[in-house]
């Protein structure tokens, strides 16, 4: 996408330069050719292909069906609280634990104003809106610590509203959850 954009930008600017420096080369191009060629034939196939691909990709990212692991993220000014509906005994914490290599559905809610849940290295973001419950499906391919932030402006503590995501290998994760269960 980036390369394509660069090529198209370069093309437009090259035509513009040519209009000044080598006008005779473009003099034969008619009005209709400029408008139909540049305005319609050039962008339409590119945009259709791009949008189509993005929509198909978007479909695959949707949290459809059930996954084995679920978590709840509740935002408030200015902290995140994570819990696990399948392990009700686990104390609410400010660190999210997930298994590596497995998709996890995270249900995001808010106790006060709008926040947004974002772990840049794990993928997209989703808003935490009071009165709504949004689900995002994330997957950490490698165990490790990932940094998360609030991406929607939520008042004077906005930049302090960070959290940690710890991805464990599946066995460690299972034993953590089991050990915590009553």
């Amino acid at each position: 996408m980036l390369a394509g954009a660069a090529v198209l930008t370069a093309l437009v600017l090259a035509l513009l330069t040519m209009a000044y420096l080598r006008p005779h080369r473009l003099a034969g191009v008619t009005a209709g050719q400029w408008i139909v060629g540049g305005g319609l034939i050039l962008p339409i196939p590119i945009l259709m292909l791009l949008t189509g691909t993005a929509l198909v990709l978007g479909e695959q990212l949707l949290p459809r069906g059930e996954v084995a692991y679920r978590a709840e993220a509740r935002a408030e000014q200015w902290a995140w609280r994570f819990s696990y509906p399948d392990v009700p005994g686990l104390p609410v914490s400010e660190t999210l634990h997930i298994p590596a290599g497995e998709p996890v559905d995270i249900a995001v809610t808010s106790a006060d104003v709008i926040h947004a849940f974002w772990v840049p290295r794990l993928g997209g973001k989703i808003d935490a809106i009071p009165g709504h419950r949004n689900v995002i499906r994330l997957q950490a391919d490698e165990p490790g610590i990932y940094r998360g932030i609030c991406a929607e402006f939520c008042g004077p503590g906005h930049e302090t509203m960070q959290f940690r995501v710890e991805a464990h290998d599946l066995e460690t994760f299972k034993s953590m959850m089991a050990g915590a269960a009553p």
Partner: peptide, 14 residues
């Protein structure tokens, strides 16, 4: 034609 074409294949409520 193009803007509403997604009614044919995208998921309606997810």
């Amino acid at each position: 034609v193009l803007v509403f074409l997604p009614v044919t294949f995208t998921s309606t409520c997810v």
